[in-house]
Each structure stands twice: as C-alpha cells, then as structure tokens.
Nucleic acid binder design. Structure first.
Length: 231
DNA sequence: GCGACAG
DNA sequence: ATCTTGTCGC
C-alpha cells in the first residue's frame, strides 16, 4: 500500500473546484466507443473514509474482463482532501484513487468507478474527471439517481431508461437483476453509453452492482481498517 | 430564497 | 460515505 499527500494546487474552495471542472471539461473525449466487453482488463476503483481521523483509503482491483477473475490489486491511503459536497465528489476521492491506480503492476484497461460521469450539474462528474486526468477509458456506475429523473425500466435484467437532464440523455437507469432497483450508468471518458451499459451487464452475472465495484469496495474498506488500526 | 443531491 | 442486530432466504 502507498501513502499519498494532497496534490500541490488541489482546490480548497468550492468556487475554485467548480472552476477546475469547467476548465477540464474541454478535454473530455466522448466520440470513442471504448474497448468491447469481455476483452482485456476491467478495473474497479472505490474509496472509504474515516472523517474523524482524517483518513481516506482507496482501492483498485483489476479483473480479467472475460472471466472476471482478479488479476491484480492495489491500495493507497491519504488525508481527506475535500469535504463531501454534492457535485464536487471528485475532489474528495481522486488523489487517493490516482495513487492506487498508479500502484498497479499491470495496465488498468477500462476503469469503472462509483458515481457519475456526464450525469453531473456541470457535466463533469467523478468518472469524467478521472478519465481526463489519466487518459484512460472510464465510466461510472452509481447506486442512486442523484438529482436526475428517469422512467422506471421494465422488470427484466437488461432493461433501461434514459437519465435525462434538460432533455439530454446524460446516463441510463439500467436494471442489472430482474425486479431489483436499477443502477445508474454514466459515461466518463473515451467510452460510449451503449458500451458502458454492455460492460455493466457483463460485470453483473450475480449481483446488482458490478464485480469491479464490489471487489474494490471490499478492498478499500479493509485498507481503511488496517490504516486506522491501533491509532 | 431554500432544500435536495453521486460518495 | 458512516452509524448498526438480527433476520429471512438461497
């Protein structure tokens, strides 16, 4: 596991953070389909916090996209770099996530993160931000609809309904298990929404949430427990 | 104007 | 995200 400082120049105010989003948004690449499902690596990233102790732990878990077997894992621990503010989640999660990705012994391939990409007040959520900073194809799968609305998808797995903002499709409510609450898929960088949904279905053979996020969630919690143990 | 709102 | 016991079910 690696320990990371908060980066130089990291925003400290909400105003500055929003300005950074507006600047970086111009570097988004949205016209690439991204890698096809079932090929190469798919990497899940997630973060866990202990606000009282000012500790954040991130995990990156690389899966073989065909078998969903774990290929590699890495964790990183740091100080909390930003408070939780809806719309500014990336400033709280990214420094540690970037360190965990950098610590991987293999290329991450396609990255799946918790939260949104284009489904964001300024069209620049966590997945988009991570994509621009790394250059990697990234999309997000969120567990809640944030401030967006959608029709209820049909009951069978694979059914979907557009997630709309001002009449524009910024993501999709996708049913990954029959009759179970959908997940919210949103493109980040260098992946199409159709392909992101196909990947999400390929990553959910047994549970509502993708194997990538389930694995990363378990690992970052373990890393947080370890980092805050006996202190 | 106020509140809600990814994690 | 996190605080938290037992419980129902495959």
């Amino acid at each position: 596991m690696t320990t990371v400082p908060i980066p130089e120049g990291w925003p400290t105010t909400e105003e500055r953070a929003r300005a950074v989003q507006d600047e970086l948004r111009a570097r988004l690449v949205l016209d690439e389909p991204g890698p096809p499902p079932g090929t190469g690596h798919v990497t899940g990233v997630d973060v866990a916090y202990d606000d009282a102790r000012d500790v954040v732990a991130a995990a990156a878990v690389v899966l073989d996209a065909a078998s969903l077997a774990v290929v590699a894992e890495a964790t990183a621990v740091g100080r909390i770099s930003f408070p939780y503010v809806p719309g500014l989640l990336a400033f709280r999660e990214l420094p540690t996530v970037l360190a965990a990705l950098a610590a991987l012994p293999v290329p991450p391939g396609l990255v799946v993160c918790d939260g949104y990409g284009l489904a964001h007040p300024r069209r620049f959520g966590l997945a988009a931000h991570l994509g621009v900073l790394t250059g990697l194809p990234v999309f997000g799968v969120a567990k809640n609809p944030f401030a967006f609305t959608h029709e209820d998808p049909a009951a069978p797995r694979g059914s979907a309904a557009p997630l709309l903002a001002d009449g524009e499709e910024v993501g999709r409510a996708l049913r990954t298990r029959d009759g179970v609450k959908p997940v919210y898929v949103s493109v980040g960088h260098r992946v199409s929404l159709d392909n992101a949904c196909a990947h999400t279905l390929a990553l959910t053979p047994a549970y509502r949430l993708p194997e990538t996020t389930r694995r990363a969630d378990a690992l970052c919690r373990a890393a947080l427990r370890e980092a805050t143990r006996a202190v």
